[in-house]
Design a protein around this nucleic acid. Structure first.
Length: 596
RNA sequence: GCGCCCGUAGCUCAGCGGAUUAGAGUACUUGGCUUCGAACCAAGGGGUCGCAAGUUCGAAUCUUGCCGGGCGCACCA
């Protein structure tokens, strides 16, 4: 995707190359915000090639540069500082309204990408770490999509193994052979019930060696499932879990996976892969089947235990194979916590050797650990925070601050997602519930508020213009003031808009300093999306949107929109701003309600 | 012990394919609502960018070595 500003700058770069008669030019950067300029060209690398001082080169460019896109150029400290002309700015802004997907890129065009958006274990509780992982997964999926990828969301559920044995042991004990006892558990209580059962089984496993043996038997049963009663109970409870997981995923503002893989189905395939490669990839050791990673600078891991059950390692191989068969993707992304980083390297190496057709399609992105700051929440519960408890806390805090009931959910999602997405993926994240629900400063609600504020101005304008005129209410109220004007050249949008051709009325004739600043910030969006896509870094979008809304709030503070002689132009500008903000929030999975 | 990740303002973090005068939020101090939403804006104090060398005209950013913290290293997921 090539946006107007990009094209304009490319033209300027061409001109500068001519002035210096060089073939290559460093990138024209967005100027540091502490300087007044829009863009800057550093001349330091040029200095080496041309054997001149950077400042001399900068001055040479300034003297020679005469381009309609550039209103002003200045040489300072080895940089050429550049200001965009009003006409260039105006035509670039027009794109935002005409392209609803403004910000989308083609960096990943035609790539088929698979991403595991959540990997949860049924039977166990969902805690804040699951929330973080799934929110990051969902947002990365949005970013891949923004990059033009053929994106597929999948998930993986651990429905076999020891943890299932632990849960099932406690559940079966509770039932005492009578499955109708499950009916007593009301649907709202099911997650808590399952969570209690798991905790009970896990506790007994540690304490009692006889129970441990019973649990081991049940764990094996989760694979084979040849006991009818076990199977019946297992399937009901697993369904309860998945219903709950789906509910929570949606509540966090994330999308469900289009294909949900279960360990159950990856198990057989995984075992088969391991067993057919004993000798060339895997080897027997102390009764288990292992992969010796030391040969490759990694460590040894067990794939099939000495009790002849598969481990996560083997099942992951099966999963990779399954994904390959069903999707044949170009890239397949796995999101894991950092403690799984080295684990994943081993599995990937084993996969590379035993399944060469996978090549290096699988990529692991590791996130840090979610830690709670020592707030009242962690001290009260004393342990990991259950995800529903988190929702409750967020909801109460928002209500206490006077949030409208209708938009409570939007606020919760905004606060939670933004708090988790605004920092770089990879490091540990210190989650402070009080800070995350704070409506002030660099927060989700700040952005949502700033959006609602802008929309409310536009709505007000739409109202006044529709009451003045015979009210033929448009389906797009926020563009109503447009109807009172002639079709603006902004909306037709000359492609490159260098302003040579001054035919027709321009919505943006000139810009005040404040308008110019806001406009430049709005137009920075595609540069940011490109960065977020290539680095897989949602936090760039967060930071940008925060700077954008800050810029808007400053503008709003000092400039009147309704009733000002420049009303129409400013409304257009606010509209562009709202559009970009809404687009950006959309990528983050944060709703942008018209009112809060 | 080996490997990976991380040390930037009191706290939470951006900035890291070097480049104009290290930035935000929060907390603290202060000013601004008869005008489009004050969940806002403006101003102030607060930093040996963990330490030390090296590369460079120039390093928070690259290299090396230390120090400090987290995680992983055989049958949990």
């Amino acid at each position: 995707m090539s946006y107007a500003v990009e094209k304009q700058l490319a033209e300027v770069a061409k001109t500068i190359k001519k002035i210096l008669s060089v073939a290559e030019l460093p990138a024209i950067e967005i100027a540091n915000s502490k300087f007044d300029a829009d863009f800057a060209l550093p001349c330091f690398t040029l200095a080496r090639d041309l054997h001149k001082k950077p400042q001399e080169i900068a001055e040479q460019i300034v003297v020679g540069l005469n381009h309609p896109v550039i209103a002003k150029a200045e040489a300072k400290a080895g940089f050429v500082n550049l200001w965009l002309s009003d006409s260039a700015l105006g035509s670039a802004l027009g794109e935002i309204v005409t392209k609803p997907t403004y910000g989308a890129q083609k960096l990943l065009d035609k790539q088929k990408i698979l991403i595991e958006v959540y990997s949860t274990n049924p039977f166990k509780d969902l805690h804040i770490g699951h929330a973080y992982n799934s929110i990051v997964g969902d947002t990365l999926a949005n970013i891949f999509k923004l990059g033009g990828a053929d994106l597929h969301r999948v998930s993986y559920g651990g429905d076999v193994g020891l943890h299932v044995g632990k849960s099932m042991w406690a559940i079966l004990r509770y039932l005492e052979g009578d499955i109708s006892k499950l009916d007593v558990v009301k649907s709202g209580d099911r997650p808590a019930f399952l969570s209690r059962m798991y905790v009970e089984g896990a506790g007994q496993y540690e304490e009692d060696s006889i129970i441990r043996q019973q649990i081991d038997v049940l764990a094996r049963q989760s694979f084979v499932q040849d006991d009818a009663f076990f199977k019946q109970v297992y399937e009901i409870c697993r369904q309860w879990s998945f219903d709950y997981i789906h509910k929570m995923i949606k509540k966090m503002g994330s999308q469900l996976a289009e294909r949900e893989y279960w360990e159950n189905e990856a198990d057989k395939l995984g075992r088969q892969i391991v067993e057919t490669h004993i000798g060339d990839v895997f080897e027997r050791s102390e009764g288990a089947i292992v992969f010796k990673g030391e040969t490759y600078g990694l460590h040894t891991r067990v794939f099939i235990t000495s009790h002849d059950t598969t481990l996560y390692e083997a099942r992951d191989l099966g999963l990779m194979q399954l994904k390959e068969q069903e999707y044949n993707p170009d890239k397949s992304y796995y999101l894991t916590a950092e403690e799984q980083r080295d684990y994943f390297k081993v599995v990937l190496k084993a996969a590379q050797l035993s399944l060469p057709e996978l090549k290096d399609k699988s990529v692991n992105i590791s996130t840090g650990t979610v830690k709670l700051s020592t707030g009242k929440m962690s001290s009260r519960t004393g342990k990991v925070v259950n995800i529903e408890g988190l929702f409750k806390e967020l909801s109460e805090a928002l209500k206490a601050r006077g949030a409208e009931e209708d938009n409570l959910q939007a606020g919760i999602v905004g606060a939670l997602r933004y708090a988790m997405l605004k920092v770089r993926i990879g490091g540990d994240i210190i989650f402070d519930i009080n800070e995350s629900i704070s409506l002030e400063g660099n927060s989700g609600p700040y952005l949502q508020y700033a959006h609602a504020r802008g929309r409310s101005i536009l709505a007000k304008l739409a109202d006044s213009s529709s009451t003045e005129k015979s009210s033929s209410s448009s389906s797009h109220p926020r563009l109503d003031w447009e109807s009172s004007k002639k079709k603006s050249s902004l909306l037709t949008g000359s492609p490159i808009g260098v302003g040579d051709d001054e035919t027709g009325e321009k919505t943006f004739v000139d810009f005040t300093a404040d308008e110019h600043k806001l406009a430049i910030k709005v137009l920075e969006y595609p540069t940011i999306t490109a960065k977020a896509i290539s680095e897989l870094a949602p936090h760039h979008i967060c930071n940008y949107l925060y700077e954008l809304t800050q810029q808007f709030n400053r503008f709003y503070e000092h400039n009147r929109i309704i009733g000002d002689p420049r009303q129409n132009q400013r409304a257009e500008l606010v509209n562009s701003y709202c559009q970009v903000l809404e687009n950006g929030l959309g990528v983050l999975g944060i709703p942008a309600p018209e009112r809060l």
